[in-house]
Nucleic acid binder design. Structure first.
Lengths: 237, 237
DNA sequence: GAGTGGTCTAGACCACGTA
DNA sequence: ACGTGGTCTAGACCACTCG
């Protein structure tokens, strides 16, 4: 849920940027003006602006103001954890998801260097196609608990949406690793890979609000269709 | 520069996490206790904790406290913009950098979908080897201005360090795109690529504090040596 | 009910950029 | 000198967790 004042202000400004009410290169109203505009204290405005800064929508320049960046062209909703459905919607692709398999099974004992003791899971395999060309094969293990069941039809749609809206689980953070490897035969076949058979693998561990691990994912991407876009701020510590 | 109270507190707690004074799974002292510990107000403590949350070092759980995550195993200094030298130091690799070329030239007119009007630049080509195996070929254009010159020896070392410590330029943010493409012949040769000749390309645009573009980079990675690790929080807006 | 984090306020002082 | 963002404070109220 998003309901705090600073979140709503951030949302409002973000949408004004998205729809070019505030244009690239423009300065936002000063923090003082925004205080009056939204009827809040300055620290609240600043929380909203910090959020937008992290997202890469604005850059604050001391002594001058907050400039609207033009990065959204590439990155608007992409950075961070984003599900295929969101990506799809935001990029207007003609994409389709086919569920190849959904079974109850045991989670793998090892994944991305972490050990998992015998845990039940729902395994889901999905093929994503764009214009009937297979581009991504997703293999997910949804751990039970916390994911007790996955009704038919959910996997075709958005698993994240189901988790958040139906089960009220809050997806919070994930670690990802991107590598390029020789594809196993079955994966090469499903993705209709060429002779060289290299595949891009995005492995991720996803966690809930309360630090519970709930999902292991391996996404296999056709190399020629793979693109990962990121906005990053320099982080020091 | 990092000198505000909340930054110093964040640094202090981060180092205590790094050296296991606060252990994975532990709760940090409560915000109230941290206030007394550091002699500050709660909002200041909260800014420090928010910073650590973004970095993926802790997770705040309402009603309970702030848990130390064990993500650092993978990600400690990696997310965000990090130069090869920093990566190298943090991962204890036996790496070497060879400067293949450094010349003054014009920047490309187009790069990652942005247009650049005729601008002078310093072109630097560097080969990174680990245990004498070529793993990355970096091609950088450093725009002049703001980068007026690059003394001999800097490119072997760290360009970022030179920009920040000598020229006092503040590197602020970057956009990156990762793709997999057929390598051009010269690049395939320099990286000693196999027959299939696929190469991972990380292209990035880097900007200063004041939103000035100062660097265009293309990094060509041997696919079998490429690994990109990321910590991401779910961002909603 | 006691302790925790989440939000918000109204003010203050500072450092920087512009003119 | 003035307006901008950067930092910090001391208090307040709320929602949540746990015993």
């Amino acid at each position: 849920m998003v309901q705090s004042k600073h979140d709503m202000i951030a949302q409002d400004i973000a949408s004004k940027i998205k729809y070019h009410q505030y244009k690239e290169g423009d300065y936002l109203p000063s923090e003082h003006q925004l205080c009056e505009l939204y009827g809040t204290s300055r620290e609240t405005i600043r929380k909203a602006l910090n959020h937008l800064t992290e997202l890469g929508l604005i850059q604050k320049i001391r002594g001058k103001g907050s400039v609207v960046l033009d990065i959204q062209k590439f990155t608007f909703p992409i950075s961070g954890i984003t599900s295929f459905k969101e990506l799809n919607r935001s990029l207007n692709m003609h994409a389709k998801t086919t569920v190849l398999k959904q079974v109850n099974t045991l989670a793998p004992k090892k994944f991305m260097d972490i050990n998992i003791d015998n845990q039940q899971a729902i395994f889901v395999e999905r093929l994503r196609t764009i214009d009937d060309l297979p581009v991504v094969l997703d293999q997910d293990y949804l751990l039970t608990p916390p994911v007790s069941s996955l009704p038919a039809g959910v996997a075709e749609d958005s698993i994240y949406e189901y988790l958040e809206k139906e089960l009220h689980l809050e997806v919070s953070y994930a670690t990802k690793a991107i590598t390029v490897e020789k594809a196993a035969d079955d994966i090469a076949e499903k993705l209709q890979l060429d002779d060289d058979k290299l595949v891009v693998i995005v492995r991720s561990l996803s966690y809930l609000d309360d630090t519970t691990l709930f999902q292991l994912t391996s996404s296999y991407h056709r190399p020629d269709k793979f693109k990962f876009i990121d906005f990053a701020r320099r982080k020091k510590i």
